[in-house]
Design a protein around this nucleic acid. Structure first.
Lengths: 333, 333
DNA sequence: CTGTTAGCGCATTCAG
DNA sequence: CTGAATGCGCTAACAG
């Protein structure tokens, strides 16, 4: 591996000068600059960014922690982050937290020891206190998909209560009264918030919330399938279901079809997230749009502006969901 | 940030000793070890892995380059890689190549300058020569989803010709003769191979390959939709379609439905990849299974064994696809 | 078993 | 505008 030293010798200058042309900061004569660049070319020199980081105390990389690398949700988020950061020549070190506190903590440890310049965290298991503490430290941290009042300026989140409300309200608007709900894991704040929105819409409409019209899923397809099965058994007469994400909705559709129920004629269904595949389900799934890619981009912008002093047009921290109506809801008369 | 020096002073030992207990390599008295660990605790010491890397010339991180962070294909691949690597306490630095030669080259540059201990590459645009050269270098490189004869031992790939063959053969077996094909971008080797398999199956069955029964897509949903439109216009009497991936298949299904064709009664369809969502399409999509997660894991194993000397049960470089038959193919009489 | 001595490759003073 | 010197935080011989 060729080093700065060899370059400086070939170019007949000092190492400091080579360093200068690399960080094209200081004024260097065009002539010496040319000489140095020529030498770099000739030797196939690649700066050792590890050494750069150590010397400059800046790694030009930001740590990203997501729950999973798999699934329709995190892909767009990571893509949004990577795209913006890359344009600014910053780099992404990625880790998965698997919704487990131990894994999340270990990942954060790792990213810190990696001397990331900033952290973008989508964490679910770690406590508020821990995060508040972390944000008080010197390392810039931005939280995705989580809102903590004490550190609200470090949080980019979606108003999930409104999302759940909108979904349920639409069902009510279409005349449904017997509306089931397949929630996400209730210990997850977003799952809970969506459920709160569901209850709120029901309350406002004067429809009592029935415990046995609600089942808890885990955000995966299978749990939607199973949950729908239970629901149908207890309430064969239900006419609509709000699923807390699109994956569970696809599982629920599968179950409904197995039982010979037509969608949306007999049972209406609405999802949440607006994942890419929602459009290709049959019937095309009505859902709540979650601007996850935009939020990833915004997190990157936040970092770029706070850490790397890039000027950003605007910083938006709270996003609003909106309905995407397709073919999975029918009017109930 | 507390350093090794402060720890050594608090513990009353030399820095070297602190280093020793961290790499719990050499023999250290239980007593001094305890003292050091106590000091580390008390100071909240976190090793600076940047400095570790520079000094040890080993970064404990492996660079991963994928085409996109988004979409149903790369998620499982990254998840497979990350999972295995993490268990060995190695870390993942990720970059996206966007199927563009410039981006791919830049990403590789970046990963190298990051002093990754190894590279796992899913590249599409970069040339064989470049890769052969890269593999000849001292940095261990494993290629995913690409087979280059000269460096076959650096390639983990799927036999896509067989996959395309299997898909088409199944259609023929079910009595179809007028079988269309929506290919991926023909400059991509896997798209081409799948198409070769299609042609081969047709040839063997004595069915002429008709140019206008073939349209080129781009692996995204929309192109499947559009492609299906063209096909239907030119050949209203086609009875089956082989789509080069599941996303295009979902688009094609959408188009067929728009035109009022029933699936599979009027038109049979088969996809490729066996993405998660394929099961939840309607009808459930028959497809060719692509063990992408396994292949990601295998890449990680390769790295673990070649670079970090972990003993791995077995190393498999060429994977075989297999059919997953569901509900999207009907018998043609 | 432990301390001492050198760097790793680069950025960054400070002179000149 | 350029060079020499110093150190980032840690590992790796080499003695003892």
């Amino acid at each position: 591996m060729v080093t700065i030293k060899e370059v400086s010798e070939l170019a007949g200058v000092s190492q400091a000068t080579v360093s200068r042309v690399m960080n094209n900061s200081d004024k260097v004569t065009d002539k010496t600059r040319a000489a140095v660049e020529h030498a770099m070319q000739q030797l196939g020199y690649r700066p050792n960014s590890i050494a750069q980081s150590l010397a400059s105390n800046r790694s030009n990389s930001v740590g990203v922690l997501v729950s999973e690398l798999i699934g329709p949700f995190y892909g767009p988020m990571m893509a949004g982050i990577e795209h913006e950061l890359r344009q600014a020549h910053k780099h992404v070190i990625i880790a998965a937290g698997h919704s487990s506190e131990a894994d999340e903590l270990e990942s954060i440890e790792f990213l810190i020891s990696r001397r990331c310049d900033a952290l973008i965290l989508h964490v679910e298991a770690v406590s508020d206190e821990y995060l508040i503490n972390l944000c008080r430290g010197s390392l810039p941290v931005i939280l995705l998909n989580r809102h903590i009042e004490e550190i609200a300026d470090h949080c980019i989140s979606l108003n999930n209560k409104i999302g759940g409300y909108l979904a349920t309200y639409e069902l009510i608007l279409q005349g449904h009264r017997k509306i089931a709900c397949i929630t996400g894991p209730m210990w997850k704040i977003d799952a809970k918030d969506r459920f709160v929105g569901y209850q709120q819409a029901l309350n406002e409409a004067g429809i009592p919330v029935q415990q046995d019209l609600v089942v808890e899923g885990d955000f995966n397809e299978l749990s939607g399938n199973v949950g729908m099965g239970k629901l149908l058994q207890q309430h064969p007469d239900l006419t609509a279901v709000f699923c807390s994400n699109d994956q569970m909705a696809s599982g629920a559709i599968d179950q409904l079809r197995q039982q010979g129920r037509s969608i949306p004629e007999q049972v209406s269904i609405i999802g949440y997230d607006d994942a890419t595949f929602a459009y290709y389900l049959y019937p095309k799934l009505s859902t709540v749009h979650y601007p996850v890619k935009d939020m990833g981009e915004m997190a990157a912008h936040w970092v770029l502006s706070k850490v790397y002093q890039l000027k950003i047009r605007s910083l938006k921290l709270v996003f609003e969901p909106y309905l995407v109506l397709r073919d999975s809801i029918a009017t109930q008369s």
